[in-house]
Design a binder for these strands. Structure first.
Lengths: 210, 210
DNA sequence: CCGTATCCTGAAAATAGTTTCAGTTCTGGA
DNA sequence: TCCAGAACTGAAACTATTTTCAGGATACGG
């Protein structure tokens, strides 16, 4: 079916973006990556802008979905084993762990995680110059931040959750930049988040069950 | 002298980058902005890449210089008046104030401050795909972070200065993204930094003299 | 003044990338 | 099996951008 192909093309876009940035986004590259002819891109998406828009919408949706899903399930990343956050079978631990997992899910050595973060990073950078993209980014960011605030409300009742959620999510974005530019490893970034989280969530605590 | 012209061209580059991003960096635009012919760009800088490199080096240097200078002097921005950080005549207050000023100097409604942050933001985004730029960015970032750590050592002797410096600088970068995409005003960003700083520097404290 | 070295111009050539389109293949229903 | 329409191809036309280059202006030492 043709939808498979559209899907495949959009995924190819993400890979191309993750590899060369929005700057290196060439229709020829996308076509090659997707294994289709260049004409098909216009056939399905109208023009370059349409294709790019579809791809970025997809990136945005992925980011939003990840926020909703928390750090759990498939591509989830857990902060360094041995830290305060232990491995768990299904996604059903306390809010503090889920919060840490959510924040740490941005980082990981899995190429797909990196590709996703890279694409999202590019989208964010592009949003500076494009109001339409800015509102899409803002929406996804707000969803994520809201989820963080919710978990924070449960895990750290003595903190101002709004301020803390803003600080934590902005911190993750900053660390993400460091990670993607090779200034930090994924593990270091995750460890940093855990350190930042500690004073909020209660020092060395044992936060089990809700 | 020809150096004036080179200078003028590089400044034009920065303006073009700040306005349309690295993606919108066209030699024609630069030439128009600088008020010179397009051929002159090649004459002075070889080719597009040479021009871009010179421009980004300049951005990088500006960032590094700002880090060294602290938030003081010319383009300095102070977090919202009425906050913990009071106005001061010359740049000679305690380390806590200087730290806040340094971190807040990234934000401001002055078009030049915004242009600088925007250009730096673009450079950072480009560094994800370009190892050479990545090392330049890493160097400037490390300088800045080191300065933050130094001030932190004076202002907050009871905190791990390395961890805190990383967290604060990454936070500023994350907030910078929010600001540039319109998710936050400069004042809100600065206020957030002050909030994040408070628990480190001593609650409601009176941090006078070393 | 003259010569010449440097700075500078802008149109033309080259290059890179996108869009169109005439035509081919595939799919599913009659 | 045949047809119609959707999916798809790829080369040619087009557009955008960079690079080159022949030469014009300007500065300056002799």
């Amino acid at each position: 079916m043709a939808n498979d192909t559209r899907e495949r093309i959009i995924e190819a876009c993400e890979r191309v973006i993750a590899q060369g940035g929005l700057r290196g986004f060439r229709m020829g590259d996308v076509a090659r990556e997707a294994g289709v002819s260049i004409g098909l891109l216009s056939y399905h998406f109208g023009d370059r802008d349409g294709l790019l828009e579809a791809a970025l919408d997809h990136v945005n949706e992925s980011a939003a979905r990840r926020a909703r899903a928390g750090g759990g399930s498939a591509a989830g990343n857990r902060p360094g084993t041995g830290s305060a956050v232990a491995a768990e079978p299904a996604g059903l631990t306390g809010p503090a762990e889920r919060l840490a997992a959510l924040l740490c899910s941005e980082f990981g050595d899995d190429p797909q995680v990196r590709a996703g973060s890279t694409a999202w990073n590019e989208l964010r950078a592009a949003a500076v110059f494009d109001p339409d993209r800015a509102v899409a980014v803002a929406r996804a960011t707000a969803d994520w931040q809201r989820e963080v605030r919710r978990l924070l409300g449960e895990a750290a009742p003595h903190t101002d959750p709004d301020a803390a959620a803003l600080i934590l999510t902005a911190l993750v974005e900053g660390l993400s930049g460091r990670w993607l530019t090779g200034q930090l490893t994924a593990a270091e970034a995750q460890r940093t988040i855990v350190v930042a989280l500690r004073p909020l969530v209660g020092a060395g605590g044992r936060p089990r069950r809700s």
